[in-house]
Design a binder for these strands. Structure first.
Lengths: 234, 234
DNA sequence: CGAAACATTGAGAGCCTTCAACAAACGTGG
DNA sequence: CCACGTTTGTTGAAGGCTCTCAATGTTTCG
């Protein structure tokens, strides 16, 4: 693999290296999402513009986050700029929680985002709030299961199979199960699947030629034959 | 990628499909490993012969495990037999803990193993034992961090880089940091790294020709230039 | 000692990448 | 509203990395 493979876009690389302080503003209002009862009540809400870094790998991890709206990617970089996106987080998803002192991943806004920020409970204090612990624990276990599934895709699936798996996965997070709106670029998809942008593009074109999907625009995908995609993931 | 790629060995596939009841025997003695204070005291110790299945994906997950001696692999299979090894577990490592009712991975003995089996605390009872919860939580978070690192390797590294990363990783679990004894076959390494057995073999031969490593036997690796390996993982 | 499992090596093919050019979409400012 | 540059996405051609297939060597074990 040459050094060229899967270099992140210039923009992303710069964002990574600069560790730019994201242009954010805090809304003093109350926590707008109360689905997980165990979470601290006083999370402050922040907005992040598209492609802004929320935190970087190695940053102090005294806070964690929940997506209110928009999409967030968590990823890792190699020193030469190659990027692996670990997950896309949508409304309701927790991310950025760590046991250690530092973030082990970077997080960036795929689209303009509203994010709730929680201050991490200090040391033994975490044990005090039982509901919180349970929430975080179950979140960790679900993340782990997803990571393991993702490893199988990365390590043992072909390009078509990867794209099919991605589309089906993203379809479940979409309003209509058949029509999906991609929030991310082809580069994001490529870095999520361990492919290049060209291979992603070619593969999707091929799926369209096969009649498996339809692409009114590059970001709007209609699943014409979900079963064909399922077969690819068998 | 044709359907042929990374088909698990016949043996492994059969083990997977047969869900064979492993030939095991229970030792009524006390828990031989007490490093994690939070664990239930009354784990029973079992022995598993090489290549025996400890549990399969989908099996009821009412128990979890800790390695006393030997090496265990946890993995997933595709329907056509392709296998992705998620992790190798050595003495002291926990594995097989789930939040849900079923195991999301399979576990098999890489070598002859001694394993302690713990009965999973039932429902709300888990909250009773605070130390146990903390242990399991921190275990989950560390597993997650490792899984994320592994995703980066699987998705964005070349064959040499993958092998280098594997050797360095395994070296940290080895007694001597320079001389490592591989417990697993080339097939296991290949399925861990998302490669084929031939590519693993060729890559290691190349590293030996370069003078980076030395292989007295196929399973004994001496790291002649650890720095060169580190560079490959930069 | 012989069979089976494991590992290495070679030759050729294929999938995906790389490099390059072009097309389309988007935002901005005149 | 349109011109224009920038970003994003598509397509083509060529090459390379890894896979596939096959044969040989090596180790293990009954």
């Amino acid at each position: 693999m040459s050094a060229q493979q899967s270099i992140a876009t210039t923009q992303a690389s710069v964002a990574h290296r600069a560790l730019a302080i994201a242009q954010t503003w805090t809304v003093p209002g109350k926590d707008p999402v109360g689905s997980s009862e165990g979470l601290p009540h006083a999370g402050s809400c922040m907005n992040f513009a598209q492609d802004r870094e929320i935190y970087g790998e190695g940053d102090e991890a005294d806070t964690f986050y929940k997506v209110v709206s928009g999409v967030v990617r968590t990823c890792k970089f190699l020193s030469d700029g190659r990027r692996q996106i670990h997950a896309f987080h949508v409304a309701g998803d927790l991310f950025g929680f760590e046991l250690g002192a530092e973030h082990t991943l970077s997080a960036e806004a795929v689209s303009d985002c509203e994010i709730v920020v929680y201050r991490r409970p200090r040391g033994a204090a975490s044990a005090n709030d039982e509901a919180l612990s349970r929430d975080l624990f179950s979140h960790a276990m679900r993340s782990l299961a997803r990571a393991q599934e993702h490893s199988l895709v990365l390590g043992r699936r072909s390009a078509v199979e990867k794209v099919a798996a991605f589309l089906l996965d993203w379809a479940t997070q979409s309003a209509d199960g058949r029509m999906l709106a991609l929030a991310m670029t082809r580069q994001d998809i490529a870095d999520y699947l361990g492919l290049t942008i060209e291979t992603v593009s070619r593969t999707m074109t091929q799926l369209e030629r096969d009649g498996t999907i339809e692409m009114p625009t590059a970001r709007q995908i209609k699943l014409k034959k979900p079963d064909a995609l399922e077969d690819l993931c068998a």
